[in-house]
Design a binder for these strands. Structure first.
Lengths: 335, 335
DNA sequence: TTGTACGCGTTATCAA
DNA sequence: TTGATAACGCGTACAA
């Protein structure tokens, strides 16, 4: 089957290619009977417009790049659903890029983004530096960062849809204080350092306001293959804090198992809150307390913001920062 | 910053655009000093070749589409890692499409694939019909189906990288028979009907060879919000089989919880095997037995096959079907 | 309402 | 070793 072009359709319908183009793009200056003729020719030949040629002619690809850390695929699934659904609504294609330590450095990803001439970029706030954003900005590519709040001075052309993790942690710690709990520890998640940083800032602030110092930020090095091996080791030697905050479900579950195996009871000896929700938290016994973050909305709002920036940058000039609210979903590991 | 084109570079380096093109594409007929001059001009201007224009000129986009069901994103993370890594090695961009019931029907996805003029397509074997593959074939788009074995007569230009679930189930059931277990049930997973079908076929075959009939294929309708609600309901009224097969981790965990809460013990009253491995299986107590499917390899092999089909269809004409082996990882829910 | 001709940014062919 | 020029497939002023 030969590649059908707009010329073939034009010949078949006995019109010029301009008319075919008008039909494709719903221009309303086409007479009804010629439109019909063209439509029939399109059907008959199975013609599909060449998006590449359209992109070249219009300097617009109707394509948006999404950049995500390879390791966070599974965890960002719902955000991605939100992104994809909205992109679909606005008829944008999605170019998908992943970053990892070995093969695909952020620099290479940026290179291919620029070459692809995508209309915009969605960045997950866990895997890029300010320099890299600066490069995209030099090439005038609008972007939206999703996840946590950007720090540093704002670069133009950048939107930000985020959860206020600093406030989340601050409020949570204060609630703990009110219940008389001030022995709190927080387990680091190496996959999401920017969010950890903000959480820690919130905890620090709450402690500082009480004239205390937070010093139970639990980190472990890569010699431990997983947080589980570390934690089960740790809780054999250390008594758990009365309240532990983890970021990710696997850490919460690891901690739960480690505590149980070391003879500690949850929530009686130690309470547990996992920042990121997941269905696995409710599958555990006791069911693990968490925060409810509207992940789908995070993605949907981010993509909607980007599409707005694309069609009319003025209308969103003032409010490119959108904070998404969260709520508590405390279950059986807290009391 | 004005869009820099090959003309700007040519002017800056005082050569013709043809020479710039040669430098970009590593043609070795360029004299060294002019190459240097051009390189410097490229650096100075920050020129990046326009992939769209290249695509138009070459009728080749170096882009591959990946089509995946929206709901399976989290579960296919490792396969996707394999796909992405290999794509990166061969310098292919990835166009990412998701299918779901509401917004993005497979038909629309195919439409945009054809319009995008991607060089090839990776399909996950869970969300398309033979008709849809036929359409892609009409437009001569090479594709590789990853996951389970394709049934039906083979369409040209289609590769298949798969796990032989039929054999997996067949062998497993025979091992059960050898241990004297013939009371087996299998829980349906609605997200992956094609794989379920093959598993069931394997079970059926093993039963048939014993002159028995398999009749414990557990299905539940959508009125149950999750397999957990169904199973915990079910096991209050029914005694569990001595061996239960589930497909997905959440089903296995749900079953485990349901059994425990109904007073049954695993693995003493009922044993449990989950076909798809995940880290959550080892976080449960007892740790759940599973099969070890090299998911990353599934993706990597599939993408490698597709790239080979793209550069030289002849060399892979004979063997476009690649079976990936699996192994048992039986843990504490079997004995 | 329709058609002509040029531009979009690159590669490839052919000539110099 | 380089340069001029015709594709690649489409959108769009401008003319008819």
């Amino acid at each position: 089957m030969k590649r059908i072009t707009i010329y073939d359709v034009a010949k078949e319908a006995d019109v010029s290619l301009a008319t075919v183009s008008r039909v494709i793009n719903d221009s309303n200056v086409v007479r009804e009977d010629t439109r019909m003729r063209v439509q029939q020719a399109i059907e008959k030949l199975g013609y599909k417009p060449n998006a590449i040629a359209q992109g070249l002619a219009l300097s617009k690809t109707t394509t948006i790049s999404i950049v995500m850390s390879e390791k966070l695929f599974a965890y960002n699934a719902k955000i991605l659903n939100g992104l994809m659904d909205v992109a679909k609504i606005y008829n944008y294609n999605i170019m998908f890029h992943t970053t990892s330590k070995g093969i695909s450095k952020m620099q290479d990803v940026i290179e291919s983004i620029i070459k692809s001439r995508v209309d915009g970029v969605i960045l997950f706030n866990d895997n890029f530096s300010e320099d890299e954003m600066e490069v995209l900005h030099e090439y005038q590519i609008p972007m939206v960062v999703v996840g946590s709040k950007l720090k540093g001075q704002k670069i133009g052309n950048v939107g930000n849809v985020y959860i206020n993790f600093e406030r989340m942690a601050y409020e949570f710690v204060n609630e703990c204080f009110e219940k008389g709990i001030d022995d709190i520890s927080m387990v680091e998640d190496k996959l999401n350092l920017s969010m950890m940083e903000q959480l820690k800032a919130g905890v620090d602030r709450a402690y500082a306001e009480k004239g205390l110092v937070f010093n139970k930020y639990v980190t472990y090095d890569d010699s431990y293959k997983s947080s589980y091996t570390f934690l089960s080791d740790y809780y054999k030697r250390n008594k758990p804090s009365r309240m532990v905050i983890t970021f990710r479900d696997s850490q919460a579950i690891a901690l739960m198992n480690a505590c149980k195996e070391s003879g500690y009871s949850i929530p009686d000896d130690t309470q547990l809150v996992c920042i990121l929700n997941s269905k696995y938290l409710t599958m555990m016994r006791p069911m693990i307390s968490t925060y409810n973050i509207p992940e789908y909305d995070l993605g949907a709002v981010a993509m909607r913001l980007l599409t707005k920036m694309l069609v009319d940058d003025e209308s969103v000039k003032q409010n490119k920062d959108i904070e998404i609210s969260f709520s508590k979903m405390f279950r059986e590991t807290t009391k």
